[in-house]
C-alpha cells in the first residue's frame, strides 16, 4: 500500500496551480483533501505522474455571504469548517444537515467541499446535496473562469464537466427561499460507510400553501449523482401530504436504474429510494411548518 513514484508540486496561488495544470493536464491530479485520491494511489489504482497539491493556496478557502444572502464557498474549504459554519447554517440549512453524514470526523477534518464535488463519487453526499440546492460551480482554466450549474456538472462515474486543465475554485449556493424546507436522509450499514442510497430534498411552498418548487438529489443509485426530476415535478402544486410524498417516492424509484453490489442489490436500492424519498419529503414539509 505504497504509491508509485510521482512528481510533487505545491503551488502557492491559483494562477500557479493553473499554470502547472495547463502544462501537465493529462498526467496531473490535483491534491485537495486527499481522502479519496491518496488511498487510490496507495492501492495503486490511481497513479498520476504529477501531483499538484493546492493545500497551500489560501485564496481557495473561505466562506462568504453575499448581499442577497447567497454563499460563495472556496473549493478548498474543509468539510468540518462548512459543518460548523453559522453562515452555512443560516443560508443553506440542507448543506448544514448533510455534513455529519459524510464519513467520519477525521475525514471531514481533511476533506474539502470542492474535492468531494470534483471527485464525483456516486455515493458521496455533497454532489447530491449540491443538485438539490441548485448550486453553481466556478471553474478556472486557461480560457478564464466559467460557472457550471450543478445539474450540468456530473456526467458519469467519477466524471464531471471539468476539462483536464480546469480547476474547481468555488461553489455558489443560493440562499434558501422563504417558506422552504429541507431534509437529508441516507442509509448505510454503519454510519460513515458509503451509503447504499441517500436523498437530499429542498421544498418551497407558494403563498397558497402548495408546493412551488421541489428538488430531490439522489446518491448511490446511479453512475452519477442525479436529480429525481419526475418525482420533484409531481410534488409541485400539491400540498405535500403523505400521499404526495408516497407518489413522489414511487416516481423516484421508477426513474432510477441502480446497480447492485455485495452490499445491496439493485432491487434493494430501489426499495431504499422509495422509503427514503418518502421520509425526506415528509421531513422537509414538516420543517416548513416548524418555522411557521
Amino acid at each position: 500500500m505504497k504509491p508509485p513514484v510521482f512528481e510533487y508540486h505545491a503551488p502557492g496561488s491559483t494562477d500557479e496551480a493553473l499554470a502547472l495544470l495547463g502544462e501537465h493536464a493529462w498526467e496531473a491530479k490535483i491534491l485537495a483533501g486527499g481522502q479519496s485520491l491518496v488511498p487510490a494511489m496507495n492501492f495503486r489504482l490511481a497513479s498520476p505522474a504529477i501531483l499538484i497539491d493546492i493545500n497551500g493556496v489560501d485564496e481557495l478557502s473561505g466562506i462568504e455571504t453575499a448581499a442577497d444572502g447567497s454563499l460563495r464557498i472556496g473549493a478548498m474549504t474543509r468539510q468540518n469548517v462548512v459543518e460548523s459554519s453559522d453562515q452555512v447554517r443560516a443560508a443553506a440549512p440542507l448543506l448544514h444537515k448533510a455534513m455529519p453524514w459524510i464519513a467520519h470526523p477525521q475525514i471531514r477534518a481533511r476533506g474539502t467541499l470542492g474535492g468531494s464535488i470534483a471527485h464525483a463519487d456516486p455515493a458521496a453526499e455533497l454532489p447530491a446535496v449540491m443538485l438539490a440546492l441548485g448550486a453553481e460551480f466556478h471553474a478556472r482554466g486557461p480560457s478564464g473562469e466559467r460557472a457550471i450549474p450543478a445539474d450540468e456538472f456530473f456526467f458519469g462515474l467519477l466524471m464531471t464537466a471539468l476539462a483536464p486543465d480546469e480547476m474547481l475554485t468555488a461553489i455558489s449556493i443560493p440562499a434558501q427561499a422563504p417558506r422552504s424546507g429541507t431534509a437529508f436522509v441516507e442509509f448505510a450499514r454503519r454510519h460513515g460507510d458509503y451509503a447504499l442510497a441517500g436523498v437530499a430534498v429542498t421544498l418551497t411552498l407558494g403563498s397558497d400553501g402548495t408546493c412551488e418548487s421541489a428538488a430531490l438529489g439522489l446518491l448511490s443509485v446511479s453512475e452519477a449523482p442525479m436529480l429525481a426530476v419526475q418525482a420533484a415535478s409531481a410534488l409541485v402544486g400539491t400540498a405535500v401530504e403523505l400521499s404526495d410524498a408516497e407518489g413522489a417516492a414511487e416516481l423516484a424509484a421508477g426513474e432510477i436504474d441502480p446497480t447492485g453490489d455485495l452490499h445491496a442489490s439493485a432491487d434493494y436500492r430501489r426499495h431504499l429510494v422509495r422509503v427514503l424519498v418518502r421520509r425526506a419529503v415528509v421531513e422537509a414539509r414538516a420543517g416548513i411548518e416548524d418555522r411557521g
Partner: peptide, 17 residues
Amino acid sequence: GKIAGVGQRMLEMVSRT
C-alpha cells in the same frame, strides 16, 4: 484481486460505463 476488493461497490457501474 484488488479491484474486486477495493472497488467492489463500483464494479457494475464501471462495467456499464
